[in-house]
Nucleic acid binder design. Structure first.
Lengths: 347, 347
DNA sequence: CTGAAAGCGCTTACAG
DNA sequence: CTGAAAGCGCTTACAG
């Protein structure tokens, strides 16, 4: 907030140097170099005067000039399916916070989960010369990540993981297991899963973790009880309708791998005359701020969304420093609420 | 997506010029100048060869170098209360789309609706030398906007308006009026308003428009029936609880100036034993994707969120071009759904 | 039609 | 402790 008045040209190193009768290289070293260099750049009295004048004149270094010299922009590109998905928006809050704390700025773009858009947006980011990318929308069959990798572009994954690249995600397998344990303990034996998009590791891992644990407990989960879907309310409603229409008895519990899909499902179930939390259990995922506040509070697996964003930046900074970057699998936690807090007799 | 292989230095104008035996200024003019300049910069045969080689080598101009010369970054800073608010996230989608279409990139930061944070984030953006700012979080008593204005920083407002500066918003007064008309026509006479934050023009205008029309219709709205609140589910719940506890008969309808507040209110009403859409009407605002999909579909005033974002960019581009920028007031539309689609007898 | 040169604001080896 | 200079990759007046 102090880059000069009334759109007058910003003050430069040269301005400060001229005013103090120093060379601009000295001023640069005092203001921008590492401590040891800065200390041998000027007497402490001079250094003090430089810093005071910089403060007084509201000097702020021109990042374009710095980047041109250093070939680093201190900018990070973030690509997400859509920021209007509260899950990604919350992760982005963690990204922004940690990036800013490390003097990085972030560009963020929506890919709408379309692979051509991902490629296009990545291209825009790279044309901007970002130092690295955080991808929140990787598809299981993505070609883009391999291309980026072979071109040496620094990037990490967030939200969704990929076996070959470093990522910061929730431990979605464990999340699915938690739901299986819970529903089994409540006595459910006929369940269905609203499974999300087949290209997203979140969907695959949550569904896979659920299935594996469910079967280990002695349960069965026929393929027709797993309905792949979009991640939004609309997708959840459609999936629930499909579940209700399937032959055989209606399930006593539904696990939706996303809170918004769960909310859509609740609408469809109510329309079918069922009372969620009494006739049928519903469990969502992510524990978005809405879940606890719904008319019928929704059980949900809490994932540490902010922290996922923070760790993603940490990972990328490691990659940029040529350090090793180990994928982060953050622990989820099941929040049981009215929508699933009742027992049924095993069938 | 074509800035050189394996982190090798990107190809420059000089690289292209050397390979073609031309001077880099010629190459620059062919590739980057306006048509008339470009045409007189080289024979069409030469120009053709330049363009082909640029394509082949994957040339993309270095934006830092360009900015250093032109003193324009083609970057826009966007500040919002929080991106995890779907309303702002959706507006940002419009911003991103229109900015990208005009070859601008966008930085976006969360201010958490805190005035110190707003100032800090604006400072970071300006230190990055953005060409202009889009503020989605202006407070009615903001000092920041006046400072920015007196310093000649180009900016426009989005989402919330301010009498002195150009803005792109929903016509929130009209939105409030639509709700008053609807509830009055359904026979409601005792109503309450969950009014939002006192510092936000959205809250003030929606509540003000509602009140004015309501009183014009012959209704009364005592001050204690207007409860200022946070914009989220939690805030809506608290406000609804306060409304239920107030002396006198419970209202037959509640207007919440935000969908999330409306959802929180629905939870509180249900807890109090009331059935929304039968015992009591609830109307929200913004018609977020959730509203229509809720177990009890929520009536809501649809605001053109994407378009608000698009227009904000348009306005800012006008300001940057020193054209006049006229505030945009976009038309809202009431979507009546189950939560308020019933009549009551006037009391 | 094409070139040569200055300069945007920095950083950093080199020199003293 | 301090300075002088080169150069990052562009744009654009000036010259021919």
């Amino acid at each position: 907030m102090n880059q000069g008045q009334r759109n007058q040209p910003a003050v430069t190193l040269k301005d400060l140097a001229d005013e103090l009768g120093l060379h601009l290289s000295t001023v640069s070293r005092v203001l921008h170099s590492r401590d040891d260099v800065a200390r041998r750049a000027a007497s402490s009295a001079t250094a003090q005067k430089v810093r005071e004048l910089a403060q007084l004149r509201g000097y702020s270094p021109d990042p374009q000039a710095t980047s041109l010299r250093t070939r680093r922009t201190r900018a990070i590109g973030v690509i997400v399916p859509r920021l209007s998905d509260i899950v990604l928006a919350t992760m982005y809050e963690g990204v922004e916070e940690t990036a800013a704390a490390n003097n990085y700025s972030t560009f963020v773009m929506n890919s709408h989960d379309d692979q051509d858009e991902q490629r296009r947006k990545a291209g825009i980011m790279l044309a901007r010369r970002v130092d690295g990318l955080i991808l929140g929308d990787v598809h299981a069959d993505s070609d883009l990540v391999h291309e980026l990798s072979s071109r040496g572009v620094p990037f990490v994954l967030m939200n969704r993981r990929h076996p070959q690249y470093p990522s910061s995600t929730c431990d979605d397998v464990v999340g699915g297991e938690l739901v299986a344990d819970h529903l089994w303990a409540q006595g459910h034996r006929r369940v269905a899963v609203i499974a999300g998009e087949t290209y997203a590791s979140t969907a695959l891992d949550r569904t896979g973790g659920f299935r594996k644990r469910w079967e280990a407990l002695g349960g069965t989960l026929p393929d027709e009880s797993v309905v792949w879907s979009h991640f939004d309310t609309e997708g959840g409603r459609e999936a629930a309708e499909q579940i209700m229409l399937a032959p055989g008895p209606v399930p006593t519990a539904i696990f939706a791998v996303n809170d918004f899909a769960a909310i859509g499902a609740m609408g469809a179930l109510r329309a079918a005359g069922l009372t969620v939390g009494k006739d049928i259990a519903v469990v969502g995922f992510n524990d978005t701020s809405l879940a606890a506040q719904l008319p019928i509070p929704l059980s949900s697996v809490r994932s540490p969304m902010m922290e996922i964003g923070r760790r993603a930046v940490g990972l990328l900074l490691n990659v940029l420093d040529h350090h090793s970057a180990e994928s982060q699998l953050l622990e989820p936690q099941l929040m049981v609420r009215e929508s699933s807090d009742f027992g049924v007799e095993g069938s």
